[in-house]
Amino acid sequence: MNIVVCVKQVPDSWAEKKLNPSDSTLDRDSVDAVMNELDEYAVEEALVLQEAHGGEVTILTMGPEKAGETIRKALSMGADKGVHVVDAGLHGSDAVATSAVLAKALGTLEWDLVIFGIESTDARMSVVPAMVAERLGSPQLSFATKVDVADSTVTIQRQTEYGFDTVEAKTPAVVSVVEKINEPRYPSFKGIMAAKKKPVTTLTLADLGLGADEVGLAGSWSAVDEFAARPPRQAGSVVKDEGDGGVKIAEYLAGQKFI
C-alpha cells in the first residue's frame, strides 16, 4: 500500500509571529521553522500503516526552499522519499490555491491513501484535506482518531463531540488525523543519516502544468486587506471571596456568556 503524507513547514507555534507590511503574508524569516506538529501524527500513522501493510511512504510538501528541511525530518522518521513543490509563484497561496497545487502533485504519484494532519498551526483552517479530496474526486475521511485498512477499504473513527463515528470508504482515499491518534516517534540517529541518501524530487509550477494566475496571491480566492497587532492581554480580574465568591464567579461567567 502506497501512502503520501502532506506536510507543511510552519513557524514555530510558540514563537511571536509577524506579517510582512508589504503584502500581508507571514514573515517567515523572523521565526524558526518547524514541521507543523499536527503533521507529525500523519507521518507516524503512515509509518505504522506501512509497518503493517508494506508499500512506500512519500512525503509531499509545498513551500520555499527551506521547507525541504521538513521533508528531511519526515524521511529521518522513516518515510521513503520526498516530493517538494517549490516555485516563487507560490508565494501567498491561500487554502484554495494550495489545494490546487497539492492535488496536481498528487496526480503525478501512485497512492492508495493520502494522509494529512488535521490543520496547520499557522493557518488553522482544517480545510485543505477536504479541498484536495474534492479536487481529486476521492472520498475523504477526516478527523480520524483511528485508521484501519483491509482489502482496499479504509475505516476510520471520526472524532465527534459525543464520541466517534465510524466512516468507511474504498481506497484510494484522503484521510486527515487528529493528535489523539498516536504518539509520533523521534527520528533516530541512524534514521537521520539514512535520510540524507533518500530521494527528494522537486517540482515547479510548470512541471505541474499550473499557470501563475492559478496560484500565489493572484490565484487566491481570499485576500488580507488589513491587519493589526493583537491588543495586549487584559489584566485578569480578581474575585475576593467574602463568602460570596461562588456567586461572583457565576455572575462573571454568565456576563461572558460562558454559562
Binding site: 516517534r185 523521534y186 527520528p187 533516530s188 540517529f189 541512524k190 534514521g191
Partner: peptide
C-alpha cells in the same frame, strides 16, 4: 527506551 530507539545507547 526512548533514547535507545533514537540510537543513543550504543554510540
Amino acid at each position: 527506551t526512548t533514547l535507545g530507539r533514537a540510537g543513543l545507547l550504543g554510540l
